[in-house]
Amino acid sequence: MTITQLSVFLENKAGTLIEMLETLKQASIQLIAITIAETAEYGICRIICSESDKAYNVLREANVAVTRSKVFALEVENKPGGAAKAISTISKEGIGISYLYSFIVREKCLLIFRTDDAERAADVIRKAKLPTIDDDKLVEFA
């Protein structure tokens, strides 16, 4: 139901992103998805990748401020209304979405998100039998 996401604190200035990406490249980490949420001074770069444990350790050793967290990964239909259908199931229970992004891998459309109540969200997803994936399956796709 959830996959591992790495969140990296980056100062919002030229060169910080590429420095972090080079570190991952040198460790032969394959990126699956990457997105940045930014403020004027800094950003959080969220990463889904192969071998997340190794990537996490490599970044920590490079003295990068990185956090590992579990985020929901829903598989949705790649057609109009696909995302709305999935998210409405969660929203109508009064659960908020903190952030969300999506990507397509092997023709599967994935929604990645964090909620303000992970426990209840997991219940809702389970009861509604929404299709999800976890770390193992993600690596298979990639």
């Binding site: 403020t39 800094y42 959080i44 990185v66 956090t67």
Partner: peptide
Amino acid sequence: LRQEYFDENFDTIATF
């Protein structure tokens, strides 16, 4: 920042 004290909530702008 001292990342050894980050917990999993440090993935949102709101936490920072």
